[in-house]
Design a protein around this nucleic acid. Structure first.
Length: 624
RNA sequence: GGGGUAGUAGCUCAGUUGGUUAGAGCGCCUGCCUGUCACGCAGGAGGCCGCGGGUUCAAGUCCCGUCUAUCCCGCCA
């Protein structure tokens, strides 16, 4: 066979052997295949050298098969030196059933092995910079991302990519069956300065003008409704130039949906069907529908977040009645000035350590608490820096309201209602983590508690700007009963907005939109106080479109990355993106973003002005 | 922009109160081994202790600064 090598480069003498076409993949062969002559190709997963005979686990994306390399086979032994982990090889030989208890039950192909008669070394690998097995989950992320092609080769990540694909496919199958049309919308859009910071793309042909990458296809999908598409969806790439988190990337994928002639109930039903199909197809789980629904107020009041994790209880309690007349001025004063006293009983966390208590307090402070009042209950005795201010009646009422028992610790927040809820909502989550660590609370990762959070306030008052801002976006329709309040009490207007929440994660959200030009104009100008000329330049085309017969419509968008993160039970959306960016927005493997040449900048009519500390040039991406 | 955590061999980590020549497991290299499957056995190489400054007779260890990664706050309609 070595006479078949093709000389591709005389200068370097690189020999490329003709490809041996594989007959099977590495997870396919069983005892029933014994005697067949097969060819396998893949990567060397491990080598066990017994001095004479060599065992190689050959791996491809499907699985592993043991290859036996016997030096008595002519021509084989000379190549043994090139059989190193991650080298790429092809092997032909006979499938043998493993004999006498040498079968490996841990391997799908463990009942057979392939006795090689021919071996091609297709590419010798250098030693990888990190282990290629599951232990690499602990390897620093920056190193794994720099060598992402090696990281992706690992079985866990191959599985992840496949599950992501299955998710997209289940979505497309469902949407197609429901008569949706997938439409692509522009990536080169224009700037819409409200909302998230955008990525700008200079326009060479329009000096001084810039495209912006879309934060979402929001405006285009509404125009598709005016365009008569009726049922639109898209797996859309979206871009936001904001600081990153574990669940945020500068570019991410959104399942974007918009429909005409529907109300909120239609939307709930559609999405519940979609989720049922996705969970079934991807992880084989039957989820319960219809989903629970909860108003924004209730979610905040009981759980302290607008995306509660319902897999465990530990709810917030209202203590206004108990402390309205209290001699403890921190509490009664908060109530007097219109705020709330909220409390939460972290059952069984009475053994909290000083360090844990401090980190809880820091978390509370980061949300605007002045401190974190608590009562510990041990041996029938309440220990607390504030207990001396409580009357016996207050203590009794507390004990009753919060079911305080030995081993409990109760935390308090006394300030404006929303802030008090938020603080204890955070305490609730952190306390739950501490209880999980102690083994006294179980949060089942295989439990899926879907929840619609509804009736968000349409507007929030922005203290800095001294005006109302849309809490979702300015196209959200008010609930019909509240329309009259737009003038008198904008804060009380509820929007036809809905969020889909799963296990404490906001999977997606959307709304029924305004489709009447007069109402949309009113919201822009009278409520949000956007100057008429700005409305005209930014949204003029939309108001115009609405004058030509806009159907009633509404939509929703889901973070596909977050969805796949949950389905694969990973901890960060970076884990389910093939080539994610680090916290500085850099992609470590290719070192993007990179520096533009003078010529490029000139062509784009752009000048680079660096901050002083970077005057030597932009920060070099790490890993260089 | 702010706060927390981390940075010691290719990887994961240990390193006591500041005290001799900085260790382990895995990986790598060499040798031995024909039924292993995370093969085994023997030997070996491999360190700017992130970087800069300070305290000290003496710093991986203490102090200050800085860089990098990550988590959080701000921000993300």
């Amino acid at each position: 066979m070595s006479t078949n090598f093709v000389l591709v480069s005389k200068g370097q003498g690189v020999l490329i052997p003709p490809l041996m076409k594989r007959t099977h993949h590495c997870s396919q062969l069983r005892a029933s295949d014994k005697g067949s002559i097969v060819t396998l190709s893949g990567w060397v997963d491990s080598v066990r050298d017994h001095g004479g005979i060599l065992f190689v686990d050959l791996r491809d994306r499907e699985g592993r098969t043991q290859i036996v390399l016997d030096p008595s086979n002519p021509g084989l032994e000379s190549k043994f030196g090139s059989i190193k982990p991650e080298s790429v090889i092809s092997v032909s030989g006979r499938v043998d059933e493993r004999f006498g208890g040498t079968a490996n039950s841990k391997l799908a192909t463990g009942e057979i092995e392939v006795h090689a008669t021919e071996l091609r070394i297709l590419n010798v690998s250098k030693t990888p910079p990190f282990p290629m097995d599951d232990s690499a989950d602990k390897v620093g992320e920056d190193l794994r991302m720099t060598y992402r092609y090696l990281d992706l080769r690992r079985a866990a990540n191959t599985r992840m990519l496949r599950m992501r694909h299955k998710t997209s496919k289940a979505i497309r199958d469902f949407m197609d069956a429901q008569d949706f049309i997938e439409v692509e919308t522009p990536i080169l859009f224009k700037s819409t300065p409200e909302g998230a910071r955008e990525f700008l793309v200079p326009s060479r042909m329009n000096p001084g003008a810039f495209y912006a990458l879309p934060q979402s296809p929001q405006q285009y999908k509404q125009m598709l409704m005016v365009g008569g598409v009726e049922r639109y969806y898209q797996l859309a790439r979206c871009f936001r130039d904001e600081d990153l988190r574990a669940d945020r990337q500068p570019e991410f994928t959104q399942l974007d949906i918009e429909l005409s002639f529907i109300d909120r109930e239609d939307m709930y039903e559609l999405i519940e069907g979609l989720m049922r199909q996705v969970w079934k197809e991807v992880i084989g789980v039957d989820i319960e529908t219809p989903f629970l629904r909860m108003s924004y107020f209730e979610a905040m009041n009981r759980f302290g977040v607008d995306k509660p994790d319902l897999r465990f209880e530990m709810e917030l309690q209202d203590c206004n009645e108990i402390f309205a007349q209290s001699g403890f001025k921190v509490f009664s004063g908060a109530i007097e000035s219109g705020g709330s006293v909220k409390a939460i009983n972290a059952k069984g966390l009475g053994d909290i350590t000083q360090g844990e208590l401090r980190s809880l307090e820091d978390a509370a402070k980061s949300l605007g608490a002045k401190g974190l009042a608590f009562i510990k209950c041990q041996d029938g005795e309440w220990k607390s820096p504030i207990i001396k201010f409580f009357s016996e009646a207050e203590k009794a009422a507390l004990k009753n309201a919060l079911d305080i028992e030995d081993g409990d610790i109760v935390f308090f927040a006394a300030t404006e209602w929303e802030r008090a809820c938020t603080i204890l909502g955070r305490v609730r989550l952190e306390a739950a983590q501490l209880l999980v660590k102690r083994g006294t609370l179980t949060i089942n990762p295989n439990e899926y508690k879907f929840l619609w959070v509804i009736e968000f306030p349409l507007m929030l008052f922005d203290e800095d700007a001294q005006r109302f801002v849309a809490s979702h976006h300015p196209f959200t329709a008010p609930v019909p009963e509240d329309v009259d309040l737009l003038d008198s009490d904008p804060k009380a207007v509820r929007g036809q907005h809905y969020d889909l929440v799963l296990n404490g994660v906001e999977l997606g959200g959307g709304s029924i939109r305004i489709h009447q030009p007069a109402l949309q104009k009113k919201v822009f100008e009278d409520v949000l106080k956007i100057p008429a000329d700005v409305v005209e330049s930014r949204f003029g085309y939309m108001l115009k479109a609405f004058e030509y017969g806009a159907p009633p419509h509404g939509g929703i968008a889901f973070g596909l990355d977050r969805m796949v993160t949950i389905l694969t039970q990973r901890s960060s959306i970076r884990d389910v993106i093939a080539f994610p960016k680090n916290q500085k927005g850099q992609e470590m493997m290719t070192s993007s973003p990179g520096i533009a040449t003078e010529q490029q900048l000139r062509d784009l009519h752009v000048k680079s002005v660096l901050p002083k500390k970077d005057a030597q040039g932009p920060n070099k991406p790490a890993g260089d």
